[in-house]
């Protein structure tokens, strides 16, 4: 008894492969042209998807901009390292090497006790008082500007510095930076939460759209199955439909976000000017754009898969 698979058709293996690819290409084009044929309905669905994805995206972009601002901000924390008094030249060199070699050091400056004294004399009115002192009361100080303002990194850096024998105390104003970071963390969580909720919304919208499309083409599905269409052949157009919806949703959310940024760029520039600064809002980078398209088309595909598996089983049962 022959296996049923062997009696399919007279098509040989390589032909089957090209036939499969051809079928995919045809279906992809056909489902796209179906979408374009009913462009108004498609556009509306895509705009719903665009809004659902655009909201968390916009928040994310704003967050990126806030982070950007805080990086460029002149109020970066400075770490002041007060050295012990009466250090040898070699000891100071050792401290400076340690500071220099730390991964989180952007720049640093050593202020010797003499320089500090001269500076102090220059700035204050205590010249006379200072002159009465037998020795220079000021310690040497290393002023350090860290590369990253992440409070966790700053804390560990400070701890390391404090361990040095030559170091007396290390001072840094961490409080406001910690607050800023906890706000940013909160905002990040909000973005993630929103993205999850609205991602679910995208899935539901797509699932419903594709369910309707399956219902509309129920007759076609039945006929295709009657004349020997495989389940994957039946499913394929709907999966591509989901994929195209995803792409359309990505495009519309991209536009939404950039229109919003355009709208916001004026007020932002005004604020920047009031601080005698200049700041241009950043939009999506190329890579972020790619991620947007990948995520969106994946969501589209997933929504389609869910709808197709649920509803084709019903149709299967009715045959």
């Amino acid at each position: 008894m022959k296996t049923p698979g062997a009696t399919t058709t007279s098509i040989s293996m390589p032909d089957l492969m090209t036939a499969w690819l051809r079928s995919h290409r045809n279906v992809a084009i056909q489902s796209l042209s179906n979408l374009l044929k009913n462009w108004l309905t498609s556009l509306m669905t895509m705009m719903v998807l665009g809004i659902a994805m655009g909201l968390p995206l916009l928040l994310y972009i704003l967050l990126v901009n806030v982070l950007n601002l805080s990086e460029n901000f002149d109020g970066k924390p400075r770490i002041s390292i007060y050295l012990n008094k009466q250090l040898e030249e070699a000891d100071i060199k050792r401290v400076l090497t340690v500071v220099n070699e730390h991964s989180n050091t952007q720049s640093f400056r050593y202020i010797s006790p003499e320089e500090a004294l001269a500076d102090f004399q220059f700035r204050s009115n205590f010249v006379d008082v200072l002159n009465t002192l037998a020795s220079n009361p000021l310690p040497g100080v290393v002023e350090l500007i860290p590369s990253y303002t992440d409070p966790v990194k700053l804390r560990s850096q400070i701890m390391e510095l404090e361990k040095l024998q030559e170091v007396d105390t290390v001072l840094a104003d961490l409080l406001w930076i910690e607050r800023l970071f906890s706000f940013i963390k909160l905002a990040e969580s909000v973005v993630i939460l929103l993205a999850l909720i609205l991602g679910l919304g995208v899935l539901l919208v797509l699932g419903n759209t594709i369910r309707l499309s399956i219902e509309n083409r129920r007759n076609e599905i039945e006929v295709v199955k009657l004349v020997g269409g495989t389940n994957s052949f039946v499913k394929r157009p709907f999966l591509y439909l989901g994929f195209w919806y995803g792409i359309g949703g990505a495009i519309s959310s991209w536009f939404l976000v950039h229109i919003c940024l355009l709208f916001l760029s004026g007020p932002v520039e005004l604020i920047a000017q009031s601080y005698r600064d200049h700041y241009a809002l950043v939009g999506l980078t190329f890579l972020e754009g790619l991620v947007l398209f990948a995520v969106s088309s994946a969501l589209g595909l997933l929504g389609a898969v869910l709808a197709v598996y649920r509803h084709l089983r019903i149709i299967d049962g009715s045959l």
Binding site: P4, T7, T8, K225, L226, V227, G228, T230
Partner: peptide, 13 residues
Amino acid sequence: HIPAIRRNVGVVF
């Protein structure tokens, strides 16, 4: 394997 079976049979309804 059902689709393969149906492809070898023509059906008029």
